[in-house]
Design a protein around this nucleic acid. Structure first.
Lengths: 185, 185
DNA sequence: TTTGAAATGCGATAAGC
DNA sequence: GCTTATCGCATTTCAAA
């Protein structure tokens, strides 16, 4: 599982420093402008803010702001908008992070495993790690018995799973959608 | 704002399920109806869907649907709406989960620690775990040197931190906002 | 007491400057 | 990138079940 090379060796210099106003010619990897960044910041804090209000906050006309947002959506910078739901209200107040280690000989079942995890209703997030534990599965369940059932039936019972370790979550705090974004605008 | 009573506490039992038709008397913890649940499901997949479309999807009139959504917001079931941002586009493609163990004698600094973590721009999520009185800090950074700086300067350098373990994330998949919600509607 | 339909004001969207 | 104009949606009101 170790020894993977990251593929981000080709990193150009930062544009933040003063210098030549060279035009960025790669549209897909174009860097974000300062206004773009502020738009993302506001939308990550409140995705349903009216476009006119957003425009005023970032100092743009409404139409301009709208086209910027659309461009960010089309470029894939904004991947979507999601409602943040109170898990207690949905009847699943118990959260856990389950560390899963796969059997070394069953790595070809990795895709099956991720597919199954993503199809399970209890699963909220799936972290594929570089460490000894291959996955960290973030789940929410109604109670401890449902947690036990999930771990036993969806993880331990499967042959590709070598071991699991279940960690109860006392509290999960969402801080930001991306680095630099602040909840307190 | 505060704990005022909603004026619609008289909700009769559902006719669908057999059983006692006991009236729910706790308004704050009132259970979600089937329609509520479907609304949450759609909004967690696409928070900016037009209300008219949402209403059609859940089989409600637009006005009714709108009042339901507002009620869910006021009850705190919907805690907010957030844009989902591509971390690579923001220039922080490297993610990690840092496990932090606090010194047993410094548990009174727990609040300071969480406050500091939430003020750091690199931090995306903060998990307070039951396992070893540990935290799991989800961060995104531009590269490995920024990750090293964060761990050394924001964690190891502080006296309340007993130990850290940094786990690189190969891939992070957001699956659902709450149990049962499916991305593929 | 909750739903559905109609009316109005505001915001989203597109064309021109 | 801003201004204006049009269109569509959000929101309220009211009638009905």
């Amino acid at each position: 599982m170790d020894g993977h090379k990251t593929d981000e060796s080709a990193r150009t210099g930062e544009a933040g420093t003063p210098g030549p106003k060279k035009r960025r010619t790669s549209p897909a990897a174009r860097e974000l402008t300062d206004v773009d960044r502020r738009i993302l910041e506001v939308l990550s804090a409140d995705a349903r803010i009216p476009n006119s209000t957003l425009a005023a906050r970032v100092g743009l006309a409404a139409s301009t702001c709208h086209s910027r947002v659309r461009e960010l959506e089309e470029r894939g910078v904004i991947r979507g908008y999601h409602a943040d739901i109170d898990l207690e209200a949905t009847g699943s107040p118990l959260q856990a992070l389950v560390a899963v280690r796969l059997r070394a000989g069953a790595r070809h079942l990795l895709r099956d495993f991720t597919t199954r995890m993503r199809s399970r209703p209890e699963v909220l997030d799936l972290y594929f790690l570089a460490s000894d534990d291959d996955f960290l599965v973030h789940v929410a369940v109604p109670g401890s018995s449902a947690l036990r059932d999930f771990v036993l039936e969806q993880l331990s019972a499967h042959p590709e799973v070598a071991s699991t370790q279940t960690n109860i979550i006392f509290e999960h705090t969402w801080v930001a959608a991306f680095p630099g974004a602040r909840a307190a605008e």
